[in-house]
Amino acid sequence: MTKRLALIVSMIFIAAVALGACATTGKPTAANFKAPKVTLVSFEVPQYDEYWYFAASVKPTKGKAGDRGAFLPMSFLFDVGNPNDFPVLLEGITYTVAFDKDFEVITTNINDSYWIPANKTSQVRVSTLVTVRSALTGLLLANAPALKQRGWDAWGTLEKWWTGVPDLSVPVTVKNAAFTFKADGLIKVVPFEATVP
């Protein structure tokens, strides 16, 4: 009888501890879900291949000819602080990268998920790249009015970017960014924009 009683008491104790643990983490509601804080910590070009471009008319040593230019990989490190008493899930980031503030060179996203613990700050690294070809396309299309307005020519601008972005003599902007956070089915989207340097 004593053993049985001990077993029942133990089960009640375990259940109480489990429920208590849940209660202390706090339940997210629309009212108490505070927007996480996003900060751009650093920017780098992780691999640099200088500035070059080959038109499709140029025969390559190996492989197929094509309009191809140097890659410019870019890596952004963000601090993501969670001011809530419960963990939040960073579920995706959509963002645009712009050079010289006005020239948008890529809009992209990541769908990776990161848990940010309650009242902690985590770091999230986001990488993307553009090529001379893709940037040229942008300068001839979506960025054409801005290019004309500044009186710049496309090739000169590309060379300036490819030599200037790695050492940040050309400003790099993350804009139109949306960091999507989730907590217990609730969604909070944090807009973000920052320029380095």
Partner: peptide, 15 residues
């Protein structure tokens, strides 16, 4: 297409 020859219309579509 957010960087190519139709990115002038593609970016808004993607978002």
């Amino acid at each position: 297409d957010t960087t190519g020859a139709t990115s002038d219309v593609g970016k808004d579509y993607a978002i």
